[in-house]
Amino acid sequence: MLELASVSKHFGGLQVLQDVSFSVKQGSIFGLIGPNGAGKTTIVNLITGLINPSAGEIRFNGQNLHAVAAHNITQLGIARTFQNIRIFKEMSLLENVVVGMHRHLGYSPLSMLFKLNSFKHAEASAKQRALELLSWVRLDHKAQMLADNLSYGEQRKLELARALATEPKLLLLDEPVAGMNPAEKIELMEEIKNIRDRGFSIFMIEHDMRFVMELCDQIAVLNFGKIIAQGSPQEVRHNPQVIEAYLGKEEEV
C-alpha cells in the first residue's frame, strides 16, 4: 500500500534522512520507532506532502506522491493525527468529527444556503456517522460536549475519530500515546486494533517501545536518519543495533 524507496531528505547542509526504504502492507499495523531526533516526524511530513524528498520515491497504491499537492493527499486516502493535538476546542465532539467529512457530504453551497432537502439529508447522515466513529473511541456519550472540556487522552482519541471521518485507506498516527497514562495507553491500543479489524491500514511513529511491540505487525527502526532494523516485533526486539540505539553500547571492561 505504502512504499518508500531510497528516500533521503536534507535541509541545506543538514542530512535528516538517508536512503530510507520500507513498505506498509494493506490491513496491517506498521510501526516506525527510533530515539528522539531520529527523523520520524520528517517521514510523516514527507508522506503527507508537507515537504518533498531530496531523493527517492514515495508511492501510495502505486502512485508517486511527489507530484501530489499536500491538500490532495487526503483525497487519495491518507489521513493523519499530529503529535501536538489539533482539535477545534470551542466546537463539540460531534462537530469536530463532522468537519472531517466535508469532502464526502456531497451538497452544494446553494442547498446549504437555503437548507434544501439534500443538505438536511447529508447533515443527518454525517452526524450519524460521526456518532458511530466516536463510539469506536468510546466518546459517543460525550458527543455534545465542548472538546475543550475533554481530558488530554480523550482529546487524542477525538483527533483519531476526526481523522477516520475522512474515510482514509491509510491512517498515519504521529506519537498517538504521547502524554497518556498507562491505563489510557492500554485502552487506545485496543481501539487501534479494532480500527484495523474494521479494514483500515495503520502507520504509526512512536517512541514508546512497549506500546509498539505489543501492537504492530511489522516494525522499522530509524536512528540518525537511517533504517537500522526491520521485521517482526520479536526480530526487532533482539536486534543488537536496536538495543544499542535505545540503551547505549556497553563499554568493555
Rank of each mutant, 00 (worst) to 15 (best):
L94C: 07
E191D: 11
R80K: 09
G179C: 00
I73K: 14
L133G: 08
I85K: 00
G56R: 14
H71N: 15
R59L: 12
E90Q: 15
P168D: 09
I87G: 02
E190V: 07
G106V: 01
S135P: 07
E57T: 15
L171V: 08
Q128M: 10
M180P: 01
F114R: 09
N96M: 00
Y107Q: 02
E159H: 02
G100M: 00
K142H: 08
K169P: 05
M101E: 09
L160E: 07
M91K: 06
S54L: 14
A165Y: 02
N61A: 09
E90G: 10
A79M: 08
E90H: 13
A178E: 05
A126S: 14
I186C: 08
G153A: 00
N64H: 10
A124V: 13
D174A: 07
N96P: 00
L188C: 06
A130N: 04
H71G: 11
N72H: 12
L170G: 14
I87Y: 02
A161I: 04
L172I: 10
I85Q: 00
D140G: 09
L131G: 13
S108L: 00
M91N: 04
G56S: 10
Q144G: 14
I192A: 12
Y152C: 00
Q63K: 07
M145D: 12
L173W: 04
V177M: 07
F60V: 04
R162N: 01
H71W: 11
N61E: 14
Q144V: 05
E57N: 15
L150D: 00
A122H: 03
G77S: 05
N64G: 03
A143M: 06
Q155V: 02
I192W: 05
L172C: 14
M180C: 04
N117W: 06
Q144F: 09
A124K: 14
K120H: 11
T81E: 06
L158F: 07
N72G: 08
S118E: 06
A130L: 06
I186G: 08
